[in-house]
Write a protein that binds this DNA or RNA. Structure first.
Lengths: 119, 119
DNA sequence: GTAGCCAGTTACCAATAGATACCGTTGGCG
DNA sequence: CGCCAACGGTATCTATTGGTAACTGGCTAC
């Protein structure tokens, strides 16, 4: 009763998820928030090189999907804190599996690329 | 001692992998090839709605990364067969983890989206 | 003869990602 | 008083990418 295998149906909702995970920024945000809530600028600086517009888009999408929660404090200067929801936190494991795979196979991939390009 | 955590370095090779996984077509190709080699049109028809150009791009990239191998038979009509390499096959597990997560949490995500949009 | 299969390629276009500059509010500083 | 910085973004513009539609060449089946 699992999977039902209709990943291949373009309307399959699984596609939506894969698109989210696939978004490189989403993964980084999840990993950054793993150790606790962060503010907008902390996320921006933690990610390194991301346009604020893109970070905003990413966070809004994640908020809409119920992966992060957004708390606004009406202070001056303003303060906005992003936190992983339980569902967002449940993504950490799948993502870890992926990053582990990536780190394990990175050398092989680089080698394959070099060989391919040499031809 | 795992991960070294430099996923946040834009030059980190892990990013490259995540970009590949993130590519929605790559995941589908891996899942389709799980049960054995397929030809170009079989992949195209299996995926459903994909432009041949895009499928070609995807397959070339995967070949370059060493995830699939491409075998050309000099026949008429031409025959090209794509097969998962061992490294490509090793991606099945991480991908399964993801799709399982996706299927498990899909209802919650849909609900979160509906709530968000209602506001 | 013409229509179609196979594995793509080419030309083109729309949507998106991203870089850069800017916004209002307030507090601190000279 | 004038000036700048901090914060969490928006506004605007451009580059890249994803995607569609049409075409190729050699053959075969109708």
């Amino acid at each position: 009763m699992v999977t039902k295998g209709n990943v291949f149906d373009p309307n399959c909702p699984t596609r939506v998820i894969l698109d989210r995970i696939g978004d490189k920024w989403t993964v980084l945000v999840v990993l950054l928030l793993r150790d606790g809530p962060l503010r907008f600028t902390e996320l921006r600086d933690g990610i390194g090189r991301i346009a604020p517009k893109v970070l905003t888009q990413t966070l809004r999408r994640m908020e809409r999907d119920g992966l992060v929660s957004r708390e606004v404090f009406a202070e001056i200067p303003p303060r906005v804190v992003y936190t992983l929801t339980p569902m967002g936190a449940s993504l950490i494991d799948p993502i870890s599996v992926l990053t582990t795979w990536a780190e394990t196979h990175m050398p092989a991939i680089t080698k394959a690329q070099t060989q391919y390009d040499a031809v």
